[in-house]
Design a protein around this nucleic acid. Structure first.
Lengths: 177, 177
DNA sequence: GATATCATGTAAGGGGTTACATGATTGT
DNA sequence: ACAATCATGTAACCCCTTACATGATATC
């Protein structure tokens, strides 16, 4: 699923600017999808060219001009078509887990710091997921709940097992804290 | 973290061919990293050019020739350096969650099938994670355990909530099974 | 007879990111 | 003063995937 489809999907919830789409991708949908301006704006251009969205320009007072996009009936059909196709597997590339896998090449201190900051990150994500009202669509609450379940599991695992990966070598180094 | 670093890390556990590295990425490490031959072989070439790994050619009986790679001391230093650098966030692109988010554009049947197949996929991943012996390195068991925790949480969530996302519309359609 | 495993590689192309370019306004 | 928010876009580049090319052996 490319950025074009994601934009189309978000626009199926209501009109938005490229900037607003980016914000949503940083907020509620951040836990499973991300995209940069450099891919969003060209995607929106192509969708407009194809007649899948309509662009209206709004000159603003004391703010840069903005372009609001609205999905067309043709766009809704294209979205349904795209979603009906068999989906590929999720693409995950976890620098965190890769680093931990090669933990033998690191110092215990580095590992512990890494896990600590990841615990914080999970807490932050959970706060965001719990804070936002999930009533945009049928799927919104489900996807958000899925995120909560998974991030809670990750958080709990890290809290309960962080000593295991560092433990061995802390004994060797015998540094008390 | 690019494919070069991943190859270097896997080679830090022991010698391997490009083909074997790919197999590992399809098996035990599949839940957080994936790469194709088209990126592995060139990566191995660059690592050899840079003196980070040594290549030895083995002519085989009734099998294609293979090239076994071994990490060098210089390669181990490079790995440590690379892992010490601040890591970026995990990159996740979930076609599954994106599709569910836009579930309003789909038929209930499609959604249910999608969730069913995802449940199967999680079960398979869990089987693989539980089957493999995790004793390659200090981090191996930890990363594997993390995978188990997260996939179990995902699996449980899907089993317990799958009716919620489909339920509403099944009532409307009033199809008994 | 078809498909899977073993085994390596290249070339074209796709889909992105990063960095740059611009600029007013608002908050610290 | 400085950073953040609002707002859009382009160009260079990078990394990686897909498809192709080759080919023997083993399994169903």
């Amino acid at each position: 699923m490319d950025v074009k489809t994601i934009c189309l999907g978000i626009l199926s919830f209501g009109d938005a600017t490229g900037y607003e789409i980016k914000k949503k991708l940083e907020g509620p949908f951040n836990h499973f999808y991300d995209a940069s301006f450099g891919s969003i704006y060209p995607a929106l251009g192509k969708l407009t060219d194809g007649g899948l969205v309509l662009r209206t320009e709004h000159t603003q007072h004391k703010r840069p001009d903005k372009k609001v996009y609205r999905i067309t009936p043709k766009g809704r059909l294209a979205l349904t078509d795209e979603l009906a196709r068999p989906i590929g597997p999720d693409r995950i590339r976890s620098n965190f887990l890769a680093t931990l896998l090669f933990a033998d090449a690191l110092e215990p201190r580095q590992i512990d710091d890494l896990i600590a900051s990841r615990i914080d990150a999970h807490r932050e994500t959970l706060n965001e997921l719990n804070a936002e009202p999930h009533d945009t669509s049928t799927g919104d609450g489900f996807v958000s709940g899925f995120g909560v379940a998974v991030h809670e599991a990750a958080l709990n695992y890290l809290e309960q097992h962080r000593h295991e990966i560092v433990g061995e070598r802390l004994l060797v180094t015998s540094e008390s804290n």
